[in-house]
Design a protein around this nucleic acid. Sequence first.
RNA 1: GGUGAGGUGGCAGAGCGGCUAUGCGUUCGCCUGCAGAGCGAAUCUAUAGGGGUUCGAAUCCCUUCCUCACCUCCA
Length: 467
Amino acid sequence: MKIFDTLSGTEKELDTSNSVRIYLCGVTVYDESHIGHARTIIVFDTLRRFLEHQGIKVKFIQNFTDVDDKIINRARAENVPSDKISSKYIASYFEGFDSLHVKRADMYPKATEHISDMIDLIKTLIDKQFAYVSKNGVYFSVSKFHDYGKLSKKKTDELISGARVEVDETKKDPLDFALWKFASDEPVWQSPWGPGRPGWHIECSAMSLKYLGSDFEIHGGGRDLIFPHHENEIAQSESCSGKNFAKIWMHVGMVTINGEKMSKSLGNTKSVDFVLKKWGANVIRLFCLSGHYSKPIDYSEELLRETITKWRQVENCYYELILSDNGQASNDDAKIVDEAIKETKTEFEDALNSDFNTPLAANAFFKLVKVINQLAASERLVTSISSQLLPALDWMLDILGLKVLQITEEEKKKINGLIERRNLLRSQKKFQDADAIRDEISRMGVVLIDHKKKTLWMKQERIGDEG
RNA sequence: GGUGAGGUGGCAGAGCGGCUAUGCGUUCGCCUGCAGAGCGAAUCUAUAGGGGUUCGAAUCCCUUCCUCACCUCCA
């Protein structure tokens, strides 16, 4: 599998000979997660599912930043300890992302639980003279790391001239960044240099090195993390270990809202909770995977509505398969199906293997959906072929993290009974009574589709306000 | 100002030297008691502008214009 590496600016072959180690920069838990977080995390969740489906071992780590000025500010504003804020939003994170069918990472390390690891790292950096103690804290000396800027393609002299930050006189160089900030107010930890708390970037270095070691396969996050976060992580980690930090840097594009940047000040942020309620997990996942991960994607009602249509096709086709009639397909149909499955699988895999091209993969997926619906429309979808199609469809559904609503045997019995009654009434032209039954079924979230010879039904996800 | 990514049909979105995806939409059919969904057909030859290179470019080079992101916390 090839993945575009931000650092080298080229596609690199992912080494899958051993387990694939992935570190994803997660969220700072000071507020609700939003659609932007969701996109990045869904991309990585899908990547992980794809690798695992090939029998590749994946070690997937995603951190929580639970010490940060924004958390502290929020805690002060609400007059509660800061761990109250972080634990609240961690809980809400899991609630949202479990609902989005995101598989749990192997580990969710928290910054506050790795203070001593960070202190060890800082010690090493001071010993190696990459860092120094100053009045306000311990700083990383950017000029000591000659590769600084290699990820974000920035030149240090340009960074200084273009800097919009006020220069902190206690730093040796304006570009130096904090590894440890002195402070006496909560939350505070002891360190060899004085009480305080860690800087932002050091946690990811400490935790990724601890759990994944040096030179792990993929380090990921949103594009906006390239500078300064990931640039600084590289500086710290490589100065400390003397080894390459990560093999591939994979960055996910931003989500815009109607073409505009999503921001608190514009008031256009879409929380995970909101989009889940409005569109449901499947539509959101499909939407997030409908563009190449590296490019920006625009959230708009129009696009999301379009995605609902696509999801309906999937639901339809799925129920066609599970409710198909007993029978043996013709040789021709068997051949068509056989080839369609092979073709789809190849296309799907090839697309994902080439820089994780999810829009192309989704395309292949929808092609198979189409084939199934075509067979169903001409009443040629019988069990001998649907039993072949269903696993292929399930395979893709699982990689994409999509879940069609399932039915219980009980529901099935009940619905079949109602349909029988309704069809009898229809044959007697008692349409009002028949429609009453249809309404009753519809209240169970089940939609009826009258084919020529039989009535197909499917349990449909109720989505947002579409009525 | 700097850096990076882009500009493809009404919309979304692949392709990244030749065979010009795909989906949504729209129109008309089929099916149906109605409805929904589905199916079929039609529609759309698009590649920001201008120069090159080439037998041939959306695809490579130059140039102009435009968009977005980052350079400050951000997934």
